[in-house]
């Protein structure tokens, strides 16, 4: 019987998360090489045999060159497939195009579905992702999708870093109410809701607060922070309603466009993101940023997946 072991692959940019996972698992990253020609075409090679191995490809897709990262990932998957890997698991903590998940107007593309089709076409056998924008996206795939939650790690962060007896959990929009309520339940806290009327993507209009935040530390919880306009506005409204202070915890800190400027100018004390998205460079420009490391969850899920154990434990608990 051939031995079947874990092989970790990562593209050459944004390897931070992959390196953390590799360290935790004690499995070195497999040598591989991505080369781009000036137009952006990618060629890829794997430095060792992956025949009959259990491949995990870890990629951090943030903002900017999303399409480059996607094509690189697809080519890496396909390369592993054609190299006779036994199983290929793509670890995409921040699933790209997750917000294009429905036909919200005529002839709008459902790009999330296209992404799912493309990943399976390339030869992906399993997807691990985290806090999908809509968990229904799992249904777009023909292969198993493990949607991990950052919640246990967030709970730990709050317990360790915030005086949480005085805190209240805020959902910045109605869609996130369930997530916020879940977190509030876990911490035994109250929660409040900000209702907003969105005019266009990446733009915020009027906001209304539902609930009482007087003299509380407000923790805004969301799955994604893009330009941070919403967060900044929400912080203002909360402070207008006599909140003591406001911090924001988001899973995917995409922080594109004017995000850093918005955060620096906002009344937020802190913006905490998980490291599903690479934002190390942005931390230098913005002292308000803080990071929650979720590599432990990912590495544990890799280990469990490889050994055929249950992953649902990780939905409630955050391994150290």
């Amino acid at each position: 019987m051939a031995n079947n072991s874990i092989k970790l692959l990562a593209p050459d940019v944004h390897r931070g998360l992959a390196e953390l996972v590799s360290k935790r698992l004690g499995v070195p990253l497999t040598d591989c090489k991505l080369q781009r020609d000036p137009t952006g075409e990618v060629s890829f090679s794997i430095g060792e045999s992956v025949r009959d191995q259990d491949i995990f490809i870890i990629t951090q897709i943030g903002s900017g060159e999303v399409n480059d990262r996607v094509l690189e990932l697809l080519i890496m998957i396909n390369a592993s497939k054609t190299a006779s890997a036994r199983r290929i698991t793509a670890i995409i903590p921040n699933f790209p195009y997750a917000r294009q998940d429905r036909k919200d107007k005529s002839r709008a593309p459902i790009t999330a579905k296209l992404m799912a089709d493309m990943l399976t076409t390339a030869g992906c056998d399993h997807i691990i992702t985290m806090d999908l924008h809509a968990s229904q996206i799992q249904g777009f795939f023909d292969v198993p999708v493990d949607n991990l939650y950052a919640e246990p790690s967030v709970v730990r962060y709050i317990k360790e870093n915030v005086n949480y007896e005085e805190a209240i959990i805020i959902s910045p929009d109605a869609g996130g109410a369930k997530r916020a309520a879940g977190l509030a339940d876990r911490l035994d806290l109250n929660f409040a809701l900000i209702h907003k009327e969105r005019a266009r993507a990446n733009e915020v209009s009027r906001m209304v607060l539902v609930g009482d935040v007087t003299d509380k530390i407000c923790i805004i919880v969301d799955d994604m922070a893009d330009t941070c306009g919403t967060l900044a506005k929400a912080a203002e409204i909360l402070l207008q309603n006599r909140a003591k202070s406001v911090i924001a915890i988001v899973t995917h800190g995409i922080l594109s466009g004017n995000a850093i400027k918005n955060i620096n100018n906002s009344k937020l004390d802190k913006v905490v993101c998980t490291n599903t998205v690479p934002f190390e460079e942005k931390m230098k420009e913005c002292p308000k940023l803080d990071v929650i490391d979720i590599s432990s969850v990912l590495s544990e899920s890799v280990r469990r997946l490889h050994n055929g154990e249950s992953i649902s434990f990780l939905f409630k608990h955050s391994p150290l």
Binding site: S63, G64, E65, V66, N67, S106, R107, A108, N202, S256
Partner: peptide, 15 residues
């Protein structure tokens, strides 16, 4: 493109 670099497309005529 969206702010985060994802491609955005809206088709303006019926197909």
């Amino acid at each position: 493109k969206f702010a985060n670099g994802e491609t955005s497309i809206s088709v303006r005529s019926s197909v």
